[in-house]
Design a binder for these strands. Structure first.
Lengths: 128, 128
DNA sequence: ATTAGTGTATTAGTTAGATAGTACACTAAT
DNA sequence: ATTAGTGTACTATCTAACTAATACACTAAT
């Protein structure tokens, strides 16, 4: 019923961190908004409260949430921080991509054309 | 002296798999070429022979090497397989990239322009 | 048959992450 | 002061994956 699928390759608490960060960046979670309590979130995701606490600790370390002891955990009100977060995440993803492609021997230009070709082929397919 | 750095986030045997696959794709390891023996490779990389065996088992499962019991482990002679391997690896990397960027709310076009911008900025920097 | 070199199998130890249970501390409302 | 809801801390246990150590099995050459 509740237990969603988590990948075995990455700690659950980090997968939840990723999910929340994505929601913030996409604007689905707004500044100053309150996150579910540790215990509530644990129920929602079907994991142990301790795992959620790790998630929230990590989010606080990243400075994307603030915890008010006794009140709850809230998305940061610093919109500039969120904007910067999106940029940093984007750069991180690009750097991994470039590194991986480079290891296969692709040049910068080939990476761009490779990506474009991928999109073209995807649009040309029947379904999905 | 020998022990190179491995990331803690990924199994060592898989990191060695990645390295060997990259060498094959880049043409640094040629078809029918013999890989170092399990024990020799273990010494070279500074890990346990058992870890190398897992590496070779995985490579065999991927059909990029063939093992001849009592003789050694050899790169496949099937050049078409290697060509396909490069394509598959490339698609895999692109798919991860696209998935990650999509999760941040980027469109297909924004991914391409984002990548191009990244390269332009990189070329405009002082060093590295 | 022996030896050296090879892959393979089996068992054991180590570690990180997840879980579980309990207790503590702060806040707001009553 | 009490209560309910919140984050935090601590300890212990469990589990899966990785790593390690050792022994076994096959191949080729002598």
């Amino acid at each position: 019923m509740m237990g969603e699928e988590f990948q075995a390759s990455k700690p659950i608490y980090m997968q939840i961190v990723d999910r929340i960060v994505q929601q913030i960046i996409r604007g689905e979670l707004l500044p100053e908004e309150k996150l579910p309590s540790v215990r509530e979130m644990a129920i929602q995701t079907g994991v142990n409260p301790n795992t959620i606490q790790r998630t929230y600790s990590e989010l606080e370390r990243m400075e994307v949430v603030e915890t008010k002891r006794g009140q709850g955990t809230f998305i940061t009100e610093d919109e500039q921080m969120i904007k910067q977060l999106k940029v940093n995440m984007q750069i991180g993803i690009i750097e991994v991509f470039v590194k991986n492609m480079k290891e296969l021997g692709f040049s910068d230009k080939e990476m761009v054309t490779g990506l474009e070709t991928y999109f073209e082929r995807k649009r040309g397919e029947d379904d999905d």
